[in-house]
Amino acid sequence: MKTTALYVFILSLGLVFVPALKGQNIGSEDFLNGIQAKIDKAFYQSLKNNDASELKGISEQLDKLNANKGNKLVKYWKSYCDYNLSICYSQLKEEKKAEKAIFEAIDKLKKMEGKNTEDYALLACEQSYSCQFRPGIVIPFVAEKLKSNCQLAIEADSLNLRAYYVLGSHDFYTPEMYGGGKEVEQMLLKAISLSSQKIKNPYLPSWGKQNAYELLIRWYVRKEKWALAQKYYEEGVRLFPESYLIKKLKEKLVQE
């Protein structure tokens, strides 16, 4: 029943979201078409140029979109953009800006009323990433909260790959001495088994699957399960032939 309800929800979003944004003043309909790809492209361009201005520009445009009439999907992409902006700032060694951006991203979703499966999954992803900016003493509490948000995402839609990816990712980065590594394989295999989108829609999220392949390959390399690492490397490259994240792992598949 929940999955069926989500199909109806996604269809209704696809049908009514664009008209709902008409009348705002920066070409919102065109701007939000393919918004994830635009953010992702700006992210990689910003890293390449060692300058976050392109990504920051999209964040500012999303702020303008949301200025006159709050829309949950605009808020979602604003949060996603600021999450990527935080990663970008961190790579550029601008840690204060990185910290500010990730907590603003989290705050945007925490305050959102009536969160759906995608909101919970993204919020959990951002909470996991934010652990690097938090005192060690509070990290276990943040971990419990993000796991709870993943469960809420799964309860709303058991086929949301992003929720499983976040669970697998967080477990991957949690040291084994603190209980990490127990569900990495299970959660990432589940994530890659699911569709990025059940219904193609350029306004809705599709992120996570490429990242799940990357972490799964790295997990098998870490555990020296070379045949499995090779298997999922080949599968990942076939599905994402332009993926730098996956292709860069080829050199790690050579057994030492």
Rank of each mutant, 00 (worst) to 15 (best):
Q197V: 06
S148A: 11
E183W: 04
L194A: 08
Y220K: 07
K209R: 14
I87Y: 12
S195Y: 09
K22R: 12
G180R: 09
N84T: 00
E29M: 09
D51G: 02
F17P: 04
G70S: 13
A52N: 08
I10P: 02
G27W: 10
L239G: 01
G14D: 10
I217K: 01
L122T: 06
A42Q: 01
N160K: 13
K38M: 07
K56A: 15
S195Q: 15
I39Q: 05
L239T: 03
I58W: 04
G208E: 02
L123A: 06
A163Y: 06
Q24C: 07
L6R: 14
I87G: 02
G34V: 10
L188C: 07
K22N: 12
L11Y: 14
F31R: 00
I35Y: 00
R222E: 03
L146H: 02
E176S: 15
I217S: 01
Q127L: 15
S158G: 02
L55P: 00
E126H: 05
Y213N: 01
P135D: 11
F17L: 15
K223R: 13
K41V: 09
A191K: 06
Q127G: 05
K69Y: 09
K248Q: 13
L146W: 03
V237R: 10
K225N: 14
Y203E: 09
Y120E: 09
Q91P: 02
L253F: 09
F17Q: 13
L194C: 08
P202N: 04
R134T: 00
A153K: 03
E144Y: 08
C125Q: 07
K78C: 06
Q230C: 04
R222Y: 01
F17G: 09
A191V: 05
T3Y: 12
E234W: 11
D157W: 06
Q151E: 15
F141H: 08
K100L: 11
N25T: 14
I154K: 03
R134F: 01
N50G: 12
V18D: 08
G236K: 06
R134P: 01
Q186D: 11
N201S: 03
D63V: 14
C150R: 00
K100V: 07
E242Y: 06
K2A: 12
K78H: 15
L92R: 10
Y76P: 05
K200P: 06
W226P: 01
M112T: 07
E118C: 07
K200V: 09
F141T: 11
W207A: 03
K108V: 05
R134C: 00
V8Y: 12
V138G: 03
L194N: 07
K97L: 10
I154L: 11
L249H: 07
V237K: 03
Y164S: 13
N71D: 14
N25G: 09
L215D: 04
I58K: 00
